[in-house]
């Protein structure tokens, strides 16, 4: 008899060492998430995967599953919390979906759809952030960066490099490049690296590839973010883009 946790009343089996998120994904139960990607070390920063375990708020991507946990996930209250967190991510940056090449393929945008978000609700912060177009095949548009550190982790853990880091404190946190000039062109990143493709929003894009898939036929025009096998679909697609 395997061990189980209960998510919204449903028994979900798990193995020792799995997080709540791992167990949920394996059981095809969707817990909204943004900074988490299976295969990379869990981060726990975006807090979209926040769930209530026996009444206590935890991040399901970092909390180990343990026998008997009673987990509230898909509740109206948590949906409202997550919608607010998504709105916070939108208004702290400069996100202009209609003019972004990532529209329709963007995880942040897809999460907003999923949570019936109709506006940013809060006053915009309008931060000033720099673009780095120095690299021949890649571009960083920090206006769209949500500080999920997927590129940071992909570069270190999969590509075996250390191209990205997050610098600064608080609302001034920003993505930086580990190179003498701080420019991407001076780093050892390559187009084939996972870090070049993993950005869930449009902050790191491949140059010279735009609008190859028409709006209306992109990932989240055809799929809901709640389809738990999407991770591979999204990755394959971005790889295909610059093939």
């Amino acid at each position: 008899m395997s061990k189980t946790i209960k998510i919204d009343g449903v028994d979900v089996p798990f193995e020792d060492g799995q997080t709540i998120m791992d167990a949920a994904l394996a059981a095809d139960i969707y817990i909204p998430h943004l900074c988490h990607k299976p295969g990379l070390s869990p981060h726990g920063s975006c807090k979209l995967c926040t769930v209530d375990v026996d009444g206590r708020a935890v991040s399901s991507c970092t909390m180990p599953a343990s026998e008997g946990q009673q987990i509230a996930n898909n509740t109206p209250a948590l949906k409202e919390v997550r919608k607010t967190i998504i709105q916070m991510l939108f208004i702290e940056g400069n996100h202009l979906c209609p003019s972004c090449e990532k529209t329709g393929d963007c995880t942040l945008q897809a999460l907003a759809y999923h949570h019936d978000m109709l506006d940013g609700h809060f006053p915009q912060f309008y931060p000033r952030r720099n673009v780095d177009a120095s690299h021949p095949t890649l571009i960083i548009d920090r206006d769209r960066c949500i500080l999920c550190e997927l590129c940071v982790r992909a570069s270190r853990e999969v590509d075996g490099k250390n191209v990205f880091a997050i610098a600064g404190r608080g609302i001034k946190r920003q993505l930086i490049v580990n190179s003498p000039s701080g420019k991407l062109a001076d780093s050892d990143i390559e187009t084939e690296d996972l870090a070049s493709h993993i950005c869930p929003v449009g902050a790191i894009l491949i140059k010279d590839h735009g609008y190859e898939v028409p709006i209306g036929r992109r990932t989240f025009d055809l799929h809901s973010i709640a389809e738990t096998d999407l991770e591979q679909v999204i990755l394959k697609k971005t790889v295909h883009h610059d093939a």
Binding site: C46, I85, M88, L89, E92, L147, R169, G170, I171, R173
Partner: peptide, 17 residues
């Protein structure tokens, strides 16, 4: 707001809001 490390969304954006 000044001392938030900025790691997680609720605190990074929330303390400024």
């Amino acid at each position: 707001a000044h001392e938030s490390c900025g790691f997680c969304t609720p605190c990074r954006v929330g303390t400024t809001l």
